[in-house]
Amino acid sequence: MKKIFCVLAVFLCVGAVLAAQIPENLNVVKIEEDGKTENGLPYTITIEYLPATGEAFFTVTINQSMFNQADAMIAIRDRAMKFIEETQENGVRKYYHYVYRGADSTKYDGAKKKVYYTSRIRFLEKQATAY
């Protein structure tokens, strides 16, 4: 009897997994662009945006010899502001401001001589109110 319930439970789980559909707005939208810092140094910025939650990972990739954390932070800040402007729908703003979701991370890849500086950002839909 226990075996029948176990087999039935397994079939129900498999059926649920096969029948589940992932909504389109849960898919990650990936944007990759090249840019230059205020000092004219080239970098690549990658945005991995999740529309369902309004969260995005902004990653600046730059050569190790050219890395300056302040420049990377400014590049991410400027791109986040531009992202808010780009997400307007029918002339109406979708997002009004953003917040950082934790500490930024810096990863060094010695083999490729690259630095990856990442910020996790959440975009907020409501306009800030003054108290």
Results as ranks from 00 to 15, higher is better:
residue 83 F to L: 00
residue 33 E to A: 11
residue 97 H to V: 00
residue 30 K to T: 10
residue 24 E to H: 08
residue 77 R to I: 06
residue 18 L to D: 10
residue 62 I to L: 08
residue 62 I to S: 03
residue 10 V to S: 07
residue 93 R to W: 13
residue 13 C to T: 02
residue 39 N to R: 11
residue 80 A to V: 02
residue 13 C to R: 05
residue 98 Y to R: 02
residue 106 T to L: 15
residue 68 N to I: 08
residue 90 N to W: 13
residue 43 Y to V: 03
residue 28 V to S: 10
residue 89 E to D: 14
residue 66 M to L: 15
residue 24 E to K: 12
residue 106 T to E: 15
residue 122 R to Q: 12
residue 71 D to Q: 03
residue 80 A to F: 01
residue 14 V to Q: 05
residue 26 L to A: 10
residue 115 V to A: 03
residue 21 Q to P: 03
residue 71 D to C: 00
residue 126 K to Y: 14
residue 22 I to T: 15
residue 26 L to H: 12
residue 94 K to R: 15
residue 123 F to D: 00
residue 62 I to E: 06
residue 48 E to G: 04
residue 79 R to K: 12
residue 88 Q to Y: 11
residue 19 A to V: 06
residue 40 G to L: 06
residue 100 Y to S: 11
residue 45 I to W: 05
residue 49 Y to Q: 02
residue 74 I to E: 05
residue 75 A to H: 01
residue 105 S to I: 08
residue 117 Y to Q: 03
residue 43 Y to R: 01
residue 122 R to C: 07
residue 52 A to S: 10
residue 11 F to G: 06
residue 70 A to Q: 09
residue 31 I to F: 12
residue 45 I to Y: 02
residue 34 D to H: 12
residue 109 D to Y: 08
residue 103 A to M: 11
residue 77 R to L: 07
residue 91 G to L: 12
residue 120 R to T: 05
residue 38 E to H: 08
residue 125 E to A: 08
residue 71 D to S: 02
residue 89 E to V: 11
residue 12 L to D: 06
residue 115 V to I: 06
residue 79 R to H: 06
residue 105 S to K: 06
residue 21 Q to V: 10
residue 52 A to N: 11
residue 122 R to T: 05
residue 32 E to T: 01
residue 26 L to W: 15
residue 117 Y to D: 01
residue 27 N to M: 14
residue 20 A to D: 08
residue 54 G to Y: 04
residue 25 N to H: 12
residue 105 S to T: 05
residue 76 I to Q: 02
residue 59 T to S: 02
residue 120 R to E: 11
residue 27 N to C: 13
residue 103 A to H: 07
residue 126 K to C: 09
residue 126 K to T: 15
residue 121 I to C: 01
residue 107 K to M: 10
residue 39 N to M: 13
residue 112 K to N: 14
residue 14 V to H: 10
residue 104 D to A: 08
residue 84 I to Q: 02
residue 119 S to T: 01
residue 36 K to F: 15
residue 104 D to C: 07
residue 120 R to V: 02
residue 47 I to P: 00
residue 92 V to W: 09
residue 48 E to R: 07
residue 90 N to Q: 13
residue 84 I to N: 00
residue 32 E to Q: 13
residue 34 D to S: 13
residue 86 E to I: 02
residue 12 L to P: 00
residue 90 N to P: 07
residue 120 R to M: 13
residue 59 T to D: 03
residue 86 E to C: 05
residue 21 Q to M: 14
residue 26 L to V: 14
residue 81 M to W: 07
residue 11 F to A: 15
residue 47 I to W: 04
residue 51 P to Y: 05
residue 67 F to S: 03
residue 19 A to R: 11
residue 74 I to C: 08
residue 65 S to A: 14
residue 45 I to V: 08
residue 108 Y to C: 01
residue 38 E to S: 08
residue 45 I to T: 00
residue 104 D to H: 06
residue 122 R to W: 12
residue 101 R to V: 15
residue 40 G to C: 05
residue 116 Y to W: 04
residue 33 E to D: 05
residue 57 F to V: 09
residue 82 K to M: 14
residue 105 S to V: 03
residue 121 I to E: 04
residue 102 G to V: 00
